[in-house]
Design a protein around this nucleic acid. Structure first.
Length: 558
RNA sequence: UGCCUGAUGGUGUAAUUGGCAACACGUCUGAUUCUGGAUCAGAAGAGUCCAGGUUCGAGCCCUGGUCGGGCAACCA
């Protein structure tokens, strides 16, 4: 994963800014980033991009990165989300500076600054209705009109704001507004709201506050309080930057943070908004935030993705300002790449059909040695029992195979991997015409590792019937059938849900070494794909998730 | 019709003060393989949204367009 020597990865535009600043000695202390999630949902792969960016930059430039919960809206935020967010960041392998920070820790300071702004005539209490205020704000093409309360005396503002804080004011009946510019072409500058009245219980400050600051006011000030140097956010906040700077102007006298925007991640065949993901969860269209089909970090984790693969993915997609849609296959490439290196190879038959080796002794059991991972010489070997009856994959046999079918068919030969070359002599069908048993002979001289170098085109995975253990296997496919499910004006994204995104297979046959596998263990089921043990798995009922199939140039071309 | 912003192979990202458009994924060949995986070798694929201009020379600079994204929550 390290770039080859001489192949230095070029800087993205944010790194270019940082290096320029560093060169000019702009930052006296360490550069300081922050990742500021709102605890109102689980983190997804788009957040992973941002996490890798912020924490990654801190690592690269020997700086710091805070985790700060942007918890200014108690009506949507919950403790369970702050817990999952911390778990996900740590799982990805990043460490935040010091301790988790919270915007709510700054409510007192924010309040004081607001009072100061009132005193300086830069903020006022407005008591018009929401509709009126919205109307007065006007439209982007025409200036807004000023509120009749805009120039009310400081004393009055002070008193009213105090009453708002003390809980004497009804929700929605008064707000504190910054006095900026009602005629600005930037709607965010038309006297933005700083505080609203909310008699809501906050997950941390409990019932202390009856007013809560808005994002625009709280965010930049929080950055400033924490000494953030680079405040990275997504493109939709670009238009907020003048306001971000304006609020900073009101209080800052030292070095101030600089907001830089980059394009958020879009992934094909999925949705990436917390609102939509929440909807899938609430309507039970998925099993939860960590459903393996979800693009959440917890979903990917349960699906069998590794932190390394996600960080590698984040690395590959880069950072820029133009809108982008990354193909999910790139994410899949990253997991395969990592799992190929680390996942032990095992045999598992998803759709078993019995093969009987007619010339193999009835009671004989051979213990064969097979290497665990040809990609990893350190991984050693394991023992696997072989006997007269084995299961192979149903689709590895065809009664009338096409020309280039390298597997089993009447009269043809294949190798059972790690064992012998076998030849199909006959097969049996039931009344419905389904093949139920295949009869083969084995060639004793072709035992794996022996001297006979006879080659056959096909190699199959298999499991000894008497030694097989049963398992449930969950096969996942993309959650949506449309490349951009949320991109249709007239069709709800849920219309594009893939009805076959989950297939549960029972009575799959696995090699006995898998008996003690525990949740999270990852394997390559030879010739099939990468699988991991699911959270639901129990010793008496193993459950595996398919993380991703192997690349397959056969089915792709047929 | 206002403001902000972007445009480079199919996808994503590069291209130092203007100097032969590069890398990765994908695709296609071939080699190799006891995984139709992996690996290795190679190829095709853009002349940089358009039109002008400056320059010996423009993806980079200038002018004017076109197209895409965002902005009018007491959300973040």
């Amino acid at each position: 994963m390290e770039p080859a020597e001489g192949n230095i990865k070029s800087l993205n535009f944010i790194e270019a800014i940082i290096e320029e600043d560093l060169k000019n000695g702009k930052h006296k202390d360490k550069i300081h980033f922050r990742f500021p999630p709102e605890p109102n949902g689980f983190l997804h792969i788009g957040h992973a991009k941002s996490i890798c960016l912020n924490f990654g930059l801190a690592e690269k430039y020997n700086g710091l990165c805070n985790l700060r919960f942007d918890d200014t809206n108690p009506t949507k935020e919950e403790t369970k989300y702050v817990e999952s967010i911390q778990e996900d960041i740590q799982w990805l392998g990043f460490k935040w500076h010091d301790k988790p920070y919270y915007a709510s820790d700054y409510f007192d300071q924010l309040y004081e600054w607001a009072v100061q702004m009132i005193n300086e005539g830069k903020a006022y209490v407005d008591e018009q209705t929401q509709e009126t205020i919205s109307q007065q704000r006007g439209v982007p093409t025409r200036p807004g009109t000023e509120s009749p309360y805009r120039n009310r005396p400081v004393e009055e503002n002070l008193e009213l704001f105090e009453r708002m804080k003390n809980g004497e004011i009804k929700d929605g009946s008064m707000i504190l507004r910054a006095k900026v510019d009602m005629s600005s072409p930037n709607m965010h500058m038309r006297d933005p709201i700083m505080y609203r009245v909310l008699h809501a219980h906050h997950h941390r400050t409990k019932d202390k506050w009856n007013i809560y600051p808005m994002y625009d006011y709280a965010h930049g000030q929080s950055d400033y309080i924490e000494g953030i140097t680079h405040s990275l956010c997504t493109l939709e906040f670009e238009i907020h930057r003048p306001l971000y700077d304006w609020f900073l102007d009101q209080v800052a006298d030292g070095p101030r943070p600089r907001q830089i925007e980059f394009a958020r991640l879009n992934l094909s065949y999925t949705v990436m908004s917390k609102r939509k993901l929440l909807e899938l969860v609430n309507k039970n269209l998925v099993s939860g935030w960590d459903d393996p089909r979800m693009p959440t970090i917890s979903g990917l984790r349960r699906r069998g993705y590794t932190p390394e693969s996600i960080r590698d993915f984040a690395d590959r997609i880069g950072i820029a300002k133009r809108d982008n849609v990354i193909d999910v296959s790139l994410l899949e490439f990253s997991v395969r790449e990592h799992l190929n290196r680390i996942a032990p190879r095992v045999f598992g038959v998803l759709d078993p059909i019995k093969v009987i080796l007619t010339n193999y002794p009835e009671d004989k059991v051979e213990v064969l040695e097979i290497e665990n991972n040809p990609e990893d010489p350190e991984s050693g070997k394991r023992k696997i029992p072989f006997s007269r009856e084995v299961y192979i994959e149903r689709e590895d046999f065809m009664e009338n195979p096409p020309k280039k079918f390298f597997r089993l068919g009447p009269g043809s030969e294949v190798r059972l991997k790690g064992a012998y070359i076998i030849k199909c002599e006959d097969f049996k069908k039931d009344e419905q015409g389904n093949i139920v048993e295949i009869y083969c002979t084995y060639d004793e001289a072709t035992k794996s590792g022996g001297h006979d170098q006879r080659k056959v085109k096909g190699t199959l995975h298999w499991v000894s019937v008497d030694h097989a253990i049963d398992a449930e296997i969950r096969l996942y496919d993309r959650l949506f059938l449309d490349e951009d499910p949320a991109g249709h004006k007239d069709v709800d994204f849920k219309e594009f849900l893939n009805p076959d995104s989950l297939k549960v297979l029972q009575n799959c046959k696995l090699e006995p070494s898998l008996k003690d596998a525990v949740a999270g263990d990852k394997f390559q089921f030879q010739r099939l794909g990468y699988f991991c043990v699911d959270l639901d798995s129990k010793p008496e009922h193993l459950v595996f998730n398919r993380t991703v199939p192997l690349r397959d140039s056969w089915t792709k071309n047929n």
